[in-house]
Nucleic acid binder design. Structure first.
Length: 113
DNA sequence: GAAATGACTCAAC
DNA sequence: CGTTGAGCCATTT
């Protein structure tokens, strides 16, 4: 496992239940800005070895589930999120204004609600 | 080590 | 938000 993956997992563990974060922001928080795709790869390689990593709280910038993994399906991810209180749109989108992770509330989520 | 791939993102239409 | 095209980076082949 690489240092990069550890950083991603560490940052992901900081995400509280009921909150979601997109790949780009997660990479930014982990200290690797611009590594959005690498985050996707890191989560893809994720397995039972890291049970405490809430991979389901990671979605794409559009606010939608992007998961396309046989072991971690988008259906399962949505179910996990809903059980945590995350609400989905009719179109399957998540409201960043309600469930977006603010990290330290220092970063402007730019939620124009 | 080069080329291809992917759980991405942003800017333009 | 919908789609397209280009940029991005780590892992895989």
């Amino acid at each position: 496992m690489t240092e990069f993956n550890e950083a991603i997992y560490a940052a992901l563990r900081r995400v509280p239940p009921g909150r979601v974060v997109n790949y780009g922001r997660l990479a930014l928080v982990a200290g690797y800005p611009g590594h959005a795709r690498a985050v996707g790869r890191a989560l893809h390689t994720l397995d039972e070895s890291y049970p405490d990593v809430p991979w389901w709280r990671v979605i794409n910038a559009a606010g939608r589930i992007s998961t396309n993994c046989p072991t971690h399906t988008a259906i399962e991810q949505r179910a996990r999120l809903e059980s945590e209180g995350v609400e989905f749109n009719e179109q399957g989108f998540i409201s960043w204004g309600r469930h977006g992770w603010l990290e330290n509330e220092d970063i402007s989520v730019a939620s124009s609600q």
